[in-house]
Amino acid sequence: MTALLSIRNLSVSYRRDGVEVAALKDISLDLEAGERLAIIGESGSGKSTLALAVASLLAGGARIGGSIEWSASQLQTSRSFAPPSVLPDISPTRGEIGSSLVGIPSATSTFGESENGSSISPQVGEMSGRTEGGAVERQPLDNRGGAPLLGRDIGFVFQDPSSSLDPVMPVGKQIAEVARTHLRLDWPNAYAKTRTLLERVRLPEATLHAYPHQLSGGQKQRVAIAAAIAAAPRLLIADEATSALDTIVQAEIVALIGQLVAEDGMTLLFISHDIALAATLAKRIAVLRHGQLVELGETSQIINAPRHAYARALLDAHLGLDAGPLLDRQGASA
């Protein structure tokens, strides 16, 4: 398998009231192309920071160390459908990619101990579904030597769809914006693409003209997913994407994500606090605690034979429909 991206010794810390707070400590992991990796952990474990770091979405002021290396060949395939004219000038031929490690820029973001969030995230404004204008920002981006671009190469689904969608823009237009910006479609074609996307996330076509407040939480999250996959990204990141939803809608959204990822051959980074939910979707699970990677393994191994005590504690704390009851039913008066 080829790695889509390799994270090496990634450390992230924030300054809060003059105190340096470490959010991630020395994380190293590979994300294979086409795999489904779940990152689980409790609040403060750094799982969301990891998702944001991969998407270059960390707030300015975050101190970042280590590297996130993207495979250029893997990124390239995602753009093969785009008109040839927009491919980067330095774009290597296919033959070269196979053997390349030296010379070909495999988009690497190596962070020294520099306190500069903005230099690694120049496209923060380009969040999926929230693009504004387009033309102005589009121009220079294709010349960036293959650095992954949020919205085009990475789709990001946030926890709260009510705040990730623009409340005063019809949701169809928000999806079409992404298609127009990253696929260079004109409006009619972008809308045609949007209709297909709505069908794929199983929303009726009438949703095209709806505003976010007219939709339920689950429908909004489907819109956010449609916008995230509009440009056919290689990587889909879902950061607690179902935590604000009830159990039934959560199951539907998880099933939808699983299906879309399988159909498009996307790589999935699924961030969750729920180990059982992660297990239903992921092939591998990474357990984070206090910013450190405590265990990484195949889902079945983590679930059935966790090596680390903390992973075991998480499993024990899970209250499933098969767990032993806490309630001493001796005292039941019903």
């Binding site: 489904r36 039934i248 059982a276 239903t280």
Partner: peptide, 30 residues
């Protein structure tokens, strides 16, 4: 009804849907 009994064997459509949607650690992995 009795919590354990209803969850083990829900009768209503919504009860069945809720039980089916609850994530399970075992037997339902990817």
């Amino acid at each position: 009804g009795d919590a354990r009994a209803v969850i083990a064997n829900p009768q209503s459509a919504i009860g069945k849907a809720l039980v089916a949607a609850t994530p399970r650690l075992h037997g339902n992995t990817a």
